[in-house]
Design a protein around this nucleic acid. Structure first.
Length: 372
DNA sequence: TTTCAAGGTCATC
DNA sequence: GATGACCTTGAAA
């Protein structure tokens, strides 16, 4: 390769190779080597084999994640967030970069070494596409982009009821071992998985959108932590409590959600594959008392595979120097996910007691672990 | 204000 | 259609 003229996508490279790498990633090109994947890539013959040129780019340390997703061709597209919400949702220069994490596709040589994470990645895209369909507003065309808005509690519950089935489908698409389990075992695992996962995904989505005072829901809509009375307000039900009383009741647990999950995800810059690792660990919770020895064995083997793959990912794709520390950072988020879940469940109990809003019985059962 | 690394454009092959 | 030189942009120092 030609001597580098500066840093490009995380590595010293020439401008030509930087442009080649940028195009390859942004256009998701897949190259095939006609030889044995060992072509000599030098200044004069670098154009002879694109597959090997791309491999060489990766080899010297160029990171596909540094390449932003191709922007939408429509420049007149409205901002996804209302302009008056600048204070709770600071617009971040890195917002596009974070969102781009969702669209990056790794070269197939990497995917072969991390089959589970790759499968989760491609199926997550499928899940996101399905969500666009089921969460579209009444009368909204499938082709127009939905503008995210702040939801009240009732609307959030209604959306979650729709989304739970998609999440269970996603889990089934990703884990053959899960599909093979007896029905009762599946229910045991999923029942204990869904609520913590829902909390974690909300925090992860807030991190991707850089919305530190909002929990972003699967639909793209969000819960505005700065407007608690709106969140607990409902058109049909009159509030028995005033704004201050509502804040006193619920604000601490929203603050806790922000401090324990959203802010750590932002400060650690958790990426999509690390999020999948957390998802896997949440699902295959082998310390549950209600599951059989057989399920525990299966769960352990899935988690072993996951740890191997995330190790590979951190080493070869993300190029993390101290992988042990990084894995520990990721795994250490799990207790906080459970703590936030517990706080949220307590909140729901409280809203029942004070009759602030009578949640759909099915959703209430789901959140408190009574889901069949 | 300068520097650097990103994306965009376009003549050339 | 792919490439690479050149240009513009925006963040950080």
């Amino acid at each position: 390769m030609e001597e580098g003229d500066g840093f490009h996508f995380g590595a010293e490279a020439c401008k030509a190779c930087a442009a080649f790498f940028r195009r390859s990633v942004s256009q998701k090109r897949i190259y095939t080597c006609r030889g044995a994947n060992d072509c000599d890539i030098t200044v004069n013959i670098r154009c002879m084999c694109r597959a090997c040129r791309y491999s060489k780019c990766l080899e010297v340390g160029m990171n596909p994640m540094g390449v932003l997703a191709k922007p939408s061709p429509s420049p007149s597209k409205p901002s996804p967030y209302p302009s008056e919400t600048i204070q709770p949702f600071p617009s971040s220069p890195t917002q596009t970069t974070r969102a781009a994490l969702l669209t990056i596709t790794l070269p197939s040589s990497f995917n072969d070494s991390m089959p589970l994470l790759s499968k989760m990645r491609s199926n997550y895209q499928k899940l996101c596409n399905a969500r666009i369909v089921i969460h579209r507003e009444d009368g909204q065309s499938l082709f127009e982009e939905k503008a995210p808005r702040a939801l009240n509690y009732q609307e959030a519950v209604a959306q979650s009821m729709k989304d739970v089935r998609l999440t269970s489908d996603w889990i089934s698409w990703c884990f053959e071992d899960f599909v093979k389990l007896p029905m009762e075992e599946k229910n045991n695992l999923f029942r204990n998985f869904y609520t913590p996962y829902y909390m974690m995904e909300g925090a992860f989505a807030s991190h991707l959108a850089n919305m530190i005072y909002a929990v972003v829901l699967p639909s793209g809509d969000y819960l505005d932590m700065t407007q608690m009375e709106t969140f607990y307000g409902s058109i049909e039900v009159k509030q028995p409590l005033d704004k201050e009383q509502i804040e006193n009741l619920f604000k601490p647990s929203f603050d806790y959600h922000r401090k324990a999950l959203i802010l750590p995800m932002i400060s650690e810059d958790i990426d999509i594959y690390e999020f999948f690792a957390l998802t896997t660990l949440l699902l295959w919770n082998t310390t549950l008392e209600t599951i059989t020895e057989e399920t525990i064995k299966t769960g352990k083997s899935v988690k072993d595979q996951l740890l191997k793959e995330i190790g590979f990912y951190l080493k070869n794709v993300k190029k993390v120097e101290d992988r042990v520390v990084r894995v520990a950072t990721i795994v250490n988020m799990l207790p906080d996910v459970y703590k936030v879940t517990k706080r949220n469940q307590d909140n729901l109990e409280m809203s029942q007691i004070f009759n602030i809003y009578t949640a759909d019985k099915k959703f209430y059962d789901l959140l408190t672990g009574n889901f069949i």
